[in-house]
Every structure is written in C-alpha cells, then in structure tokens.
Amino acid sequence: MTTTTADAPDRTEAAALLHAVADPARLAVIHRLADSPACVCVLQEQVPLALNLLSYHLKVLRAAGLVTCSRRGRWIDYVLAPDALERLHATLPGTPVRQPAAAGGAAAVLPQYAVCPPQCADQA
C-alpha cells in the first residue's frame, strides 16, 4: 500500500476519532447513545463512573464531534452526532462509507420525555 501526503489529514482525523473511542467508558457511552439520547443521570446509571469522570469522557467525545448535547434546566441531554457512526466506520480500512442520515435524524430536537426518566424530570 502506497502512502501519500494527501492521506495524512484523513489519517490524522481517523486517529483522533479512534483515540476518542479507545477508552472502554467512552465506547460504552457511544454504544448507549447509539440506542437513544440520554441525560447524564441515565448515562451514569448505565456507565457506572463518578460524575466528574463521566463528564470528562463526555467532553472528549464532544471535542471529537461524536456527541452533541443540549441543556434542559439543570440537566444535560446527550445524543450521538448524526454522522458519528459513519465517521467511525470510515476510519476503518475497507469499510464502505455510508450516506449520512437525512436531516431531522437522531440529533434533531430531543423530546424531553424520551430522554430522561420521570424521577430526573421531577428534579429539574
């Protein structure tokens, strides 16, 4: 396989994305958010980490552009970026690049009732 300098930016971005999901906790968050959006309280139940450590991992995923968030009162709701899985798949050799999801996909407006269980909504 021949390496060209034109491939370097693509590989740099690919390495950054893979680095972002290389931690078991961050990978668990990606898997959880692939199912549906979630508030921090739900993520903390399903990815059992101290809140400050979970916040750090979410910050890394946001910086990589894999996760987006929105504030709802005291709570922050997280959702997988619309192109996150496609970008991750594109980092792997031999993986066909899929078309991004249509506008209004998973990262559209987060319905409050679908993101946070009732006990969390009462605390907001």
Rank of each mutant, 00 (worst) to 15 (best):
Ser36Thr: 12
Asp83Asn: 13
Ala107Lys: 00
Leu80His: 04
Leu85Gly: 06
Ala50Gln: 11
Glu86Tyr: 05
Gln123His: 13
Ala108Leu: 07
Ala121Cys: 09
Leu80Asn: 04
Asp35Pro: 11
Leu80Pro: 00
Leu110Thr: 09
Leu80Phe: 07
Thr2Cys: 09
Arg32His: 12
Ser70Pro: 05
Leu92Pro: 00
Arg32Ala: 14
Ala107Ile: 00
Trp75Pro: 00
Ser70Tyr: 07
Ala121Tyr: 01
Leu110His: 00
Arg26Ser: 14
Asn52Cys: 14
Leu53Phe: 15
Pro93Glu: 04
Pro100Asn: 02
Gly73Lys: 02
Thr5Glu: 01
Leu33Met: 08
Ala8Val: 15
Asp122Thr: 07
Thr12Cys: 10
Ala106Asn: 08
Pro48Gly: 06
Leu54Lys: 06
Pro82Trp: 01
His19Ser: 15
Ile76Trp: 15
Leu49Trp: 05
Val79Phe: 03
Ala103Ile: 08
Gly94Ala: 06
Cys120Glu: 03
Gly73Leu: 05
Val97Asn: 06
Val67Cys: 04
Cys116Ile: 02
Ile30Trp: 01
Gly65Arg: 03
Val67Tyr: 03
Thr12Arg: 11
Asp35Phe: 12
Lys59Arg: 14
Ala34Met: 12
Thr95Leu: 07
Tyr113Gly: 15
Ala14Cys: 06
Gln112Lys: 10
Ala20Thr: 05
Pro93Arg: 00
Ala103His: 07
Ala8Arg: 13
Gln44His: 05
Leu43Asn: 03
Ala15Glu: 11
His31Leu: 12
Gln46Ala: 08
Gly104Val: 03
Met1Glu: 12
Leu49Lys: 05
Thr4Tyr: 01
Asp23Phe: 11
Trp75Tyr: 15
Pro24Lys: 02
Leu88His: 03
Cys120Met: 03
Val21Cys: 03
Val47Tyr: 03
Gln112Cys: 14
Leu85Pro: 02
Glu45Ile: 02
Ser36Ile: 10
Cys116Met: 08
Leu33Gly: 04
Cys120Gln: 02
Arg32Lys: 12
His19Tyr: 01
Ala81Asp: 11
Pro100Cys: 01
Thr12Asn: 09
Arg72Pro: 06
Leu51Asn: 02
Ala14Leu: 02
Val47Asn: 01
Arg87Glu: 10
Ser36Trp: 07
Ala6Cys: 06
Gln46Thr: 09
Ala107Glu: 11
Leu17Met: 08
Thr68Val: 10
Pro48Phe: 05
Glu13Gly: 00
Pro82Val: 00
Tyr113Asn: 14
Ala84Ile: 02
Cys69Met: 10
Pro118Cys: 04
His19Asn: 14
Ala8Cys: 08
Thr95Asp: 10
Ser55Lys: 13
Pro48His: 09
Thr3Gly: 04
Ala84Asn: 01
Lys59Pro: 07
Asp7Pro: 00
Glu13Asp: 11
Cys41Glu: 13
Asp122Ala: 11
